[in-house]
């Protein structure tokens, strides 16, 4: 069965929830970049809002947009990915525990620190009693969720699924990563330092082609380590009887730092007919940032227009390739529908 992306939603470092033309967007700054928070009051009852972690709020907001676009009230499944979950609350509970010598601790931040709290609270708010999974595998957390949903819709087990990736900036953890020279500071750029972001990107996968459909998800794959980028891409595309030169647009998760290694340039070399598009200069790096790249790819296919220049282009296939520091590689193939 074919699987389509019929709704998108996002909360990111950008104003508004859509990110079609790069000219309208602001590049992230050096260091840490907080997501622009929409107003949640109309969407979430005050009684629930008061205890919600930032990640939960962003997730509910982005998933609401995606479901609304897809015209679905309650999805068959909620499948999320997150690198570190609701990190702010995890830090809060941890610090309180260490500072107060395990005394006077309250449950709210502990509950929010549970990795599946975003998926659980989306289900709670939607009263969705279906399948509910959360993947927490660093830079392939989102793709794991995508693959799970794709397989179930392809197999006819689900008609649709709400999927998403969400991550928060936790001040202390990010500060430590700056000390370890993995994230840039406002003063200093490190060899392997990235500019960090946060956000939530949600999508509705469905077995129906509708007027709203953005793209067909053909396939996705993840691998912890790979021996050769060309072989990885060729093998992946061969499963669909495609070759790399049939890819018109290659979206890469490049940070333009030493973390990129030669991975993306090798991908670019083998997909020799592709226009190369990047997105992390607008989303920042985070564990589920690749979902933001996939969202851009969806819009490029639907509007047959390049993200970087706004130029019209006939696009049949887009390949999204992401990795981080040589680990957690993922490929996602989208097709025009």
């Amino acid at each position: 069965m074919k699987v389509y992306i019929n709704g998108l939603g996002s909360v990111s470092c950008q104003e508004g929830t859509r990110n079609f033309k790069s000219a309208d967007l602001t590049k992230v700054s050096q260091g840490l970049n907080q997501a622009t928070q929409p107003s949640y009051k109309d969407l979430i009852p005050a009684g629930m809002l008061r205890r919600m972690a930032k990640g939960v709020k962003m997730g509910i907001y982005a998933s609401h947009s995606a479901l609304e676009e897809a015209n679905i009230t309650v999805p068959d499944a909620v499948i999320t990915g997150t690198g570190l979950g609701c990190l702010i609350d995890s830090e809060k509970f941890l610090c309180a525990m260490l500072e107060n010598n395990e005394s006077y601790l309250t449950p709210t931040s502990f509950i929010q620190s549970t990795h599946n709290t975003v998926g659980g609270q989306i289900a709670l708010q939607l009263q969705c009693m279906g399948y509910n999974f959360t993947y927490v595998h660093q830079n392939t957390s989102f793709e794991s969720a995508l693959l799970d949903a794709l397989l179930q819709v392809q197999a006819g087990e689900l008609d649709n699924a709400l999927i998403g990736g969400v991550d928060e900036i936790g001040d202390m953890t990010m500060h430590f990563l700056q000390l370890a020279k993995k994230i840039n500071t406002t003063d200093e750029v490190f060899t392997k330092g990235v500019n960090y972001g946060e956000g939530a990107t949600f999508m509705v996968l469905e077995n129906r082609l509708t007027a709203q459909s953005y793209a067909e998800v053909v396939d996705t794959d993840i691998s912890n380590r790979i021996d050769s980028v060309p072989d990885y891409i060729k093998t992946f595309l061969a499963r669909q009887s495609l070759t790399p030169n049939q890819i018109e647009v290659l979206v890469v998760g490049s940070n333009q730092t030493a973390n990129d290694g030669t991975y993306y340039s090798e991908a670019q070399n083998i997909c020799s007919n592709s226009v190369v598009e990047t997105f992390k200069e607008f989303s920042g790096e985070y564990h589920t940032a690749s979902a933001f790249g996939l969202l851009n790819a969806c819009e490029m296919l639907k509007y047959q227009q390049l993200f970087s220049t706004g130029e019209s282009k006939s696009i049949e296939y887009i390949l999204v390739y992401n990795q981080f520091d040589g680990k957690d590689h993922s490929l996602t193939l989208l097709k025009k529908c």
């Binding site: 979950g85 549970t114 990795h115 599946n116 998926g119 509910n132 999974f133 959360t134 993947y135 927490v136 595998h137 660093q138 392939t140 957390s141 794991s144 794959d221 993840i222 691998s223 912890n224 380590r225 790979i226 021996d227 680990k327």
Partner: peptide, 21 residues
């Protein structure tokens, strides 16, 4: 933790982690 386990057993390929409490 999953990456460490994969490296320890020498596995290259599909590796992921689930956390639903």
């Amino acid at each position: 933790s999953t990456d460490k386990i994969a490296d320890y057993i020498g596995l290259k390929g599909f590796v992921t982690t689930i956390s639903t409490a």
